[in-house]
């Protein structure tokens, strides 16, 4: 019986070690996340810094990875989140869209922030600094509303 437990845990540990070898590719770029967006829309610094802390990790080409992202399966989960996030919205691609699509995205961003759907609750649990105060939400909503009137 004792041997059985030993063997089971040995296999379990081996599996954990083995999965560490499968590392998802990282979402990083030589250009700062959001820079393309900030430059082409002349976004003011306050808006940019709020987006940096709360949004760019999943919505730009550059993620600021925490230490535990190197441990699987945390890294896999994170890679999935980023893939989904960028699929919905990538600030670094926003400047390449048509005016209609930019307006549509800006409208969605405003609503998501206003309804406190974004940043995601699960993300806030691990990144408490990303939480937006009601004043900060207003700044972003005002900015993205102005983007809809361009």
């Amino acid at each position: 019986m004792n041997q059985k437990i030993k063997l089971t845990s040995a296999i379990f540990i081996a599996a954990i070690l083995l999965i560490q070898l499968i590392r998802p590719s990282k979402n990083t770029s030589a250009i700062r996340g959001g820079k393309t967006f900030v430059d082409s829309f002349q976004v003011d610094r306050q808006v940019d810094s709020l987006l940096s802390v709360s949004c760019y990790d999943c919505h730009s080409n550059n993620t600021n990875y925490p230490w535990y992202s190197s441990i699987q399966p945390a890294g896999w989960l994170m890679a999935n989140h980023i893939k989904d996030g960028k699929g919905e919205l990538n600030f670094d691609e926003l400047p390449t869209y048509t005016i209609r699509k930019i307006r549509s995205k800006a409208n969605q961003i405003s609503s998501q922030i206003r309804d406190e759907e974004m940043p995601l609750k699960s993300y806030l649990l691990l990144h408490p600094a990303a939480r937006l105060s009601s004043e900060e939400r207003d700044i972003l909503i005002k900015y993205f509303n102005s983007l809809q009137r361009r």
Binding site: K4, L7, A14, I19, I22
Partner: peptide, 21 residues
């Protein structure tokens, strides 16, 4: 006993494989 080992091995292998694929 042998069965348990086989089962655990298969289970851990399938975790790894499913992650890959």
């Amino acid at each position: 006993m042998n069965n348990t080992i086989l089962f655990v091995a298969a289970a851990s292998l399938s975790i790894v494989l499913s992650a890959c694929s």
